[in-house]
Design a protein around this nucleic acid. Structure first.
Lengths: 219, 219
DNA sequence: TCGCTATGTAAGCAATCGCTGACTTGAAGA
DNA sequence: TCTTCAAGTCAGCGATTGCTTACATAGCGA
């Protein structure tokens, strides 16, 4: 009888363990291996949490030896930090700028939530919730969330000298919290009926919620 | 140099490690010890996650030997299951019945979110998000969330033969997801400004969000 | 073809995990 | 006072964790 009941489980989703972003990993390509490791690690961290995800499993997902993780990222925390940085970058480039209209911002936020549990977007959002316990990686995580908050607030009509700035910042962050909560219930918790709800069912109420927080809230 | 960077840390919050619900643990009281263990475990599980929380630390919080956990709860999973059951019970008895008005229900939900990070209410909500990987405990968790959803939907004007039942159920669950997301950001992630926001700042936007989801949504 | 360097592997160490069995202690009943 | 049993402790086990060291090999320039 084993004393460790949580099974590491098979590779996540349908992606073969040795597939990189574009082609089959042929080995002997350091940067491709690093990208594949970050990709696999982000899935494991986002779905299972920092502590439960093991470096051996992540390396196995990629089809590579465990020691490479320490060679390329120094430590497990270093790998988590790399995941956070990549997520931060991608969220920054993917999402609307200050020039966008509020409707487009809301539409984009809804899309992030709805496109779950497949795709990488929700996983990125989910990763923002996971704490590694490492001070450095967690500071990046916190800063990414706060930066995301400011961009959302700016897109919602934020002005630096507006006396209602604090209120708008708070409402933007409540929107993000809502998105994170829904993604969490849809992917990790797998709670019905929200886990199996389709885009047509989720879009309308989520749009209204974000509208109340970001549009009406600006007054 | 250690290879385990995550420090277990000191006992959480200001509660002395050997304090039970009412009096100082005098030992030789099995049921009191069990309650104290569940109490400490729920804090650790909710704040650090299932995997990161260790039975040794939980036992140390109570001031008791680790072996008692296995004696009373068979395994770590058994302890987690006990936490889930107690949380499920308390949520059931604490929250409004079907006879309550919608305003009261919303007010209660807002109170759950606002009273963070102190108090046990948010911790109970947070625990609902944590997966142990154990099938039994996770089934209890899922069922508790779905039961909570139905109660909230019923309080929002749910009728069994209403053609909009599915929509109301979904909106109730989105409300819960929102509450969980905000609690998560306030306690675990400690993201500003929502982490340090006061009751007066949170009550109004949250009430409006829940109102949109539960009141307007019923049509 | 030789040799050097980057890329990856194999094996194992120290620490920590959950858990177990044998032991000690306290208190109530006869 | 003596017996008895529940309540709690102690020491250590097997497994797993992150990580390190020593070694193997592919690819490229000379």
């Amino acid at each position: 009888m084993s004393n460790q009941t949580q099974a590491p489980g098979a590779p996540l989703r349908s992606t073969p363990p040795d597939a990189d972003d574009e082609m089959i990993r042929s080995g002997r390509d350091a940067s491709a291996t690093q990208r594949a490791l970050v990709r696999a690690a982000r899935r494991r961290f986002a779905t299972e949490g920092y502590r439960a995800a093991t470096v051996r499993q992540i390396a196995a997902d990629v089809g590579v030896n465990v020691a490479l993780i320490n060679r390329y990222f120094v430590s497990k925390e270093g790998l988590f930090e790399a995941c956070m940085l990549r997520t931060s970058d991608e969220l920054d480039t993917q999402n609307p700028t200050r020039a966008s209209s509020l409707d487009e911002v809301i539409e984009r936020l809804v899309a992030h939530v709805v496109n779950a549990p497949d795709g990488d977007d929700p996983l990125q959002l989910l990763l923002l919730l996971r704490s590694s316990g490492d001070e450095n990686a967690d500071r990046i995580r916190r800063r990414t969330l706060e930066h995301f908050t400011q961009r959302l607030a700016a897109a919602a009509g934020w002005k630096a000298d507006d006396p209602a700035t604090a209120s708008i910042l708070l409402r933007a962050q409540l929107s993000i919290a809502t998105a994170l909560g829904v993604v969490m219930l849809r992917t990790s918790a797998a709670v019905q009926p929200v886990a199996s709800a389709g885009s047509d069912e989720l879009t309308e109420p989520l749009t209204r919620v974000f509208g109340v927080l970001l549009d009406d809230g600006a007054r």
